[in-house]
Design a protein around this nucleic acid. Structure first.
Lengths: 111, 111
DNA sequence: AAATATACATTGACAGGCGAAGTATTATGC
DNA sequence: GCATAATACTTCGCCTGTCAATGTATATTT
């Protein structure tokens, strides 16, 4: 991976919620979507992804249900909840703030 | 603290190096500068700060020396090295990339 | 028949951040 | 004069998110 994980760290939940805000999906698909969207420059590790699902479900941001595939491997679908949408809004807002802050603190000028 | 730590996580080194790129300084002062610069919205925790100093010194990005204060508590000053400046450049470049990536992955549109 | 792709899950280790507590000196308010 | 706050650095142990490794199972491709 070309992007340092420690910088992306903490955005996993936001990324997943942002994807689910556009419609229900499942782990494998979400990861492929991220890979596609970043031109292969980034992907969530499976362990990270499924850990995040547990975390988000536990905190009531998402719910899950088994798909009814008649063929292929079974899929566990995830859906964002109202609470999840509110959380997503808050996380996006946090990100706006943090981006400005980090820009300011790591800039070449101003010290 | 109003900014989620996990979002700032991974930027500690960059913040410190950016500050030291403007001239030698010491822990307490660096932290106060950050507090000032962010209007009190952010500060590094002492443990985080000094852990980062150890890490950066270990990796050759900074060097340290005791100040010759005749009054007040002793201060350990830090100076950025050439390697440190190169690292800083790389970290800033990483940040540019990551910022775009995160923006794209957490945006409302595009899924 | 073997290899690859799809799909989910768990375990154990690691690293960074941080709360808490401690040490020491100087400045300030009463 | 004395308590309190500010300055300044340090270490210990915990918590959390990430991830390598490994395992399971099915479907498709070669």
């Amino acid at each position: 991976m070309s992007i340092a994980s420690d910088i992306i760290r903490g955005h996993t939940d936001t990324i997943i919620l942002a994807r689910l805000a556009a419609g229900d999906s499942y782990g494998y698909e979400i990861n492929k979507a991220i890979e596609r969207k970043t031109g292969g420059r980034y992907e969530l590790k499976e362990a990270t992804l499924y850990t995040a699902f547990r975390r988000l479900e536990e905190s009531g941001c998402i719910t899950s249900y088994w798909g009814d595939e008649t063929t292929g491997a079974r899929r566990r679908y995830y859906a964002i909840t109202e609470a999840g949408r509110r959380t997503l809004q808050a996380l996006r807002s946090d990100w706006e703030d943090a981006r400005l802050l980090i820009d300011s603190l790591t800039a070449a000028e101003g010290y």
